[in-house]
């Protein structure tokens, strides 16, 4: 009985994950420019990958395979932003202008009220 419930749950998770993966890939085709496509790609990396991997973990049970699947997720979590940031920065540097509805870049940034200098923060060791 318990096994059947776990089986059904992992089924649902895997199918949902597959759905979000295809949606993200379709979004990469539909979006009009590079930066908006990056948002679609991050749906694959976060929601799609998580649901699929958790579904696989339910199948594997409490084993070393599950531990490795956790590492796959952590890999996405630590590498995804690094790659996305490098890509966005390189594209802006190369002069790819994002398609924008509203540009607030020239405005004084809000937030961080108690600290207002724009100097680089020195590492404290």
């Amino acid at each position: 009985m318990m096994e059947q419930i776990v089986d059904i749950a992992s089924w649902i998770l895997i199918v949902l994950g597959s759905f979000f993966i295809i949606t993200g890939a379709a979004g990469m085709l539909r979006m009009p420019d590079l930066f908006t496509r990056m948002h679609a790609a991050s749906v694959i990396e976060t929601l799609g990958a998580t649901l699929l991997v958790v579904g696989l973990m339910l199948q594997a049970g409490f084993t070393l395979v599950s531990a490795k699947l956790v590492f796959v997720l952590l890999l996405f979590f630590f590498i995804g932003p690094v790659a996305a940031h490098a890509l966005a920065q390189a594209a802006l540097h190369a002069g790819v202008e994002p398609m924008l509805d509203e540009d607030r870049r020239n405005r004084e940034p809000p937030g961080g009220a108690e600290k207002n200098e724009t100097d680089p923060v020195e590492p404290k060791t």
């Binding site: 993200g24 979004g27 930066f35 679609a40 976060t46 509203e102 405005r107 600290k115």
Partner: peptide, 27 residues
């Protein structure tokens, strides 16, 4: 992620790309 998925599925593709600057209060 769910919000972005809804935007992708929406036939009208209701995006309004915005660039902005924020301050980080971390030390």
């Amino acid at each position: 992620a769910w919000a972005v998925t809804r935007i992708i599925i929406d036939p009208k593709l209701p995006i309004s790309p915005t660039m902005t600057k924020v301050r980080a209060s971390q030390k």
